[in-house]
Amino acid sequence: MIQIYLQTQCAVIQLLGYTPDEHGISLYTQHLSQAMQLSSPDVQEQLRTTSRDTYRTVLGGAFGMDLITEQRTKGELSIVDARNMMHKVSLRMQDDSVLEKVARACSGEGGSGVVPKDSEAGRAMELAYKHTAIQKIMVYDVYLSGSPCLVEECGFGKGEEGYVKMQGALADHQSDPLISQYVGGAMLKLLESAGIDMKNWQTPR
């Protein structure tokens, strides 16, 4: 189900002109954050809460969970707790075992099949293959592996349900600069391990 949600998220941002991958999601989030910074305080708060609640509604709906009600009952996560959690996530993302697994997963043919890898279509398919591999490793090796797993360690329970609850709770701080710095730096490490050349990434038109 997590994979379905990620694919849906990528499909939606593609309609807005972003690439359907982690880069597109990151760039969309970055642009939204920049737009908010240029807005008045009232507009910023309205955009922030609307974005947060929309994210929770869509995420919860994809997994049959009412994240809005749950968060209202529990109260919002403090910025200190959110930063501490995402610091743990970023460290796990940069763990040698995770980076090595990404490198191994992305070192094969890349799913290009009969399409020549030196063609534009072949390169696009190879890139999509690597993005999918990174997504799976992010969810299952960063968040859901270990005893206790990261989501359980952070107090959200086990498995996919714990992962979804954690993402819902963190939604209130998704535009925090320090959290973006944590995740952005760690994601660069993952992309490097996957053999993705950041210089060749296209920005949305």
Rank of each mutant, 00 (worst) to 15 (best):
S90E: 08
G159F: 03
K130G: 06
Q34D: 13
E109S: 12
S175F: 15
T49I: 15
K165I: 00
Q14G: 04
T203I: 07
L15G: 04
G146F: 03
A171D: 05
K199Q: 13
K199C: 05
L191T: 05
G75E: 07
M85P: 00
E100H: 10
T8W: 10
V102A: 10
S51Y: 08
M166N: 04
E126R: 15
G162R: 01
G159A: 09
E126K: 15
A124N: 10
P177M: 08
S175E: 11
L15H: 06
E152G: 02
L15K: 13
T19Y: 02
V115H: 04
G168L: 08
R205W: 03
C10D: 10
L77H: 03
V151K: 01
K199V: 05
L15N: 09
Q181T: 11
L127G: 03
V89P: 02
D81H: 01
A121S: 13
S175H: 15
V80A: 14
A11C: 05
P148H: 07
G108Y: 06
I137K: 09
R52M: 15
Q71G: 07
V89M: 07
G162C: 07
L178M: 14
L38P: 00
M93A: 10
Q7R: 12
L16W: 04
I68L: 15
G61W: 04
Q94V: 00
L77D: 02
I25T: 12
I79L: 11
E70N: 04
K74R: 15
L127P: 03
F156G: 01
R123Q: 15
W201P: 00
E161V: 12
K101W: 00
I137W: 06
Y28V: 10
S180Y: 01
T132P: 00
E126D: 10
V114Y: 11
G75F: 08
A62R: 07
H173G: 10
R104D: 13
Q46Y: 07
K165G: 01
G60N: 09
D21M: 06
S145K: 14
L38E: 12
E109V: 06
K189T: 07
E192T: 12
K136I: 04
M85S: 10
D96P: 00
G168A: 11
G64W: 08
M198Q: 10
S97D: 14
V139G: 02
L91M: 13
A124M: 11
S51T: 14
V98P: 01
Q174G: 06
